[in-house]
Design a protein around this nucleic acid. Sequence first.
DNA 1: TTGTAGGCGTTATCAT
DNA 2: ATGATAACGCCTACAA
Lengths: 341, 341
Amino acid sequence: MAQNTRPKPLSIKDIARLADVTHPTVSRALRNSPLVNPRTIERIQRIARESGYRVSAVARGLVTQKTNTIGVVVTTIADPFVSEVVSGIEHAANDHGYSVFLADSYADPDREVRVVHLFAERRVEGIVVTSSRVGTRYLRILSEMKVPIVLINNQRRGEFVHSVMIENVEASRLATQHLIGLGHERIAYLGDRYGYQSDTERLGGYRQALKQARRPFLPELVVHGDGKPEGGRQAMETLRSLPQPPTAVFCYNDMSALGALGAIHQSGLRVPEDISLVGFDDLFFASYTQPPLTTVRQPRQRMGLLAMEILLKLMSGQDSADTIKVPAELIVRESSASPRA
Amino acid sequence: MAQNTRPKPLSIKDIARLADVTHPTVSRALRNSPLVNPRTIERIQRIARESGYRVSAVARGLVTQKTNTIGVVVTTIADPFVSEVVSGIEHAANDHGYSVFLADSYADPDREVRVVHLFAERRVEGIVVTSSRVGTRYLRILSEMKVPIVLINNQRRGEFVHSVMIENVEASRLATQHLIGLGHERIAYLGDRYGYQSDTERLGGYRQALKQARRPFLPELVVHGDGKPEGGRQAMETLRSLPQPPTAVFCYNDMSALGALGAIHQSGLRVPEDISLVGFDDLFFASYTQPPLTTVRQPRQRMGLLAMEILLKLMSGQDSADTIKVPAELIVRESSASPRA
DNA sequence: TTGTAGGCGTTATCAT
DNA sequence: ATGATAACGCCTACAA
């Protein structure tokens, strides 16, 4: 209980006293203003350095009306997909002199809105939101705050102007066509149950591929996980218990596929001999599953970087493309093969 | 190039004008001061709400000398271990009204120091650093900034006062004893090559276990990965090519184990029949590998939370325990078994 | 080349 | 219960 009240940090006035000048001179010297005598600059900077002085970004932010900060809202940072996107954002932000505030929304719309408001109070100059779950009812609220917002893989299409999205429909059509091309007749879709836009779109691509191949769409072959391994495992068991189980499963994401893979192994079947499996995301473990997972690659770091680039444009007052759709790439590994005759 | 200069946010003075009071009254009303008339409070708050007013946390921070922010420095957020620790920190921070700045150090000591300095400029009230690589040469620099710092799994023991660490030695002794108990004679240690303290300690626990069991320590059975799957894969191949390969491998972390597992499968061998494998961390995929991975669990979210709790104490001026050592738990799954006779 | 004065948006300390 | 005034630490005219 020592209650050591921390000493106040030094201010430019303190440095001014030490250097026997006035504080505006210090302010200028520290920013290498050409207005001030080079020798004075050097002296002041030395004194500042030796005394451990650090400008107060908060005071500077108040007067310049520029905080050089952005806010990043994620469902949860403890998700490999999310954390890589954030990594891309963070990198780009830092390269441009921005610090990033991070906050989890836990996929709770109320919490998401609260966080965005909090960021507004902190006077962030821009906000990136991944997997936004904010519906139309908040449209007004978000629009009244004048901070540019870029969404990554947002839930509803066209709700906000600026976003970075993966080409879900095209990618899952490709993935499904891959399975059809291998000769599969009964292809399941193991989706997500939380009503994300990306799930809807991936299901859409799956259905398009079936339709183009003149295959029937069988509702019983669509099941729902939770986007995580456990949900994938359970959903896979549901599929396995069907009177006529599928010979191939296209999963909403790699996390689900991981769980599905576990369920398949547990039931004594083999991939791809007994059942083919395709994921989505190409997370780091995809090439290390047994067998290595065929999946759709999303350039996660790049998506974060693109979001940041849009944000930088918007923050500088420029307009920017409404929506960037990032192409995805099918990575064929060993979890998909022709069904046994 | 629309250059829409964003309008300045409303200030309490604007609200004061709208409410026909002075700005201190607005300030008080918005914080529900008992000093101001309840009807006035309600009126002012309504006006503020309807006009979309948000307090400026930066102005408030300047006058109160309290920013309610902390800084978190990580090697890279794009690492499942790190991101879960950060998740724990973020959660605890938010529960206590703190916003968190996030920055990557990319395991670069210079960058780490720069980031810490930047955080100091932003007047964060505390800092958490994971896997700090800052050596003694920065001790002075870091000590001269008066911000409390808590390290998680820091590189060098005893360098800083406050830290949260996993019981590396005890845990890896346990893991190695597990393998010895299963009857393995040739047990390898697949470590990390970057000289982290935790690697040294885990190697130490491994050696202790061998010694206690009166087994020889064989230097050729110690190899080094990079803490990631690819490095684990390569290191495993080295082990496989030994004249007398090991029958069991204890890995520095699960990421390395994942790569090692891939290498084993690739060479046509089986786990655990031909070779036992034990990891460290218990990352989310550990129970979904084939076979499920025996590993040492680190309570990552909890470690982040503990770090935050120490930090909160320090920030409130209290003293706190120097170092918290968190016990780890051996999770026995199916990747470890007795060697074949 | 440097100093003086004012203001950024709050909160805090006085008065009234 | 409210208003007037100062202060937080910095930047930016403007003056010298």
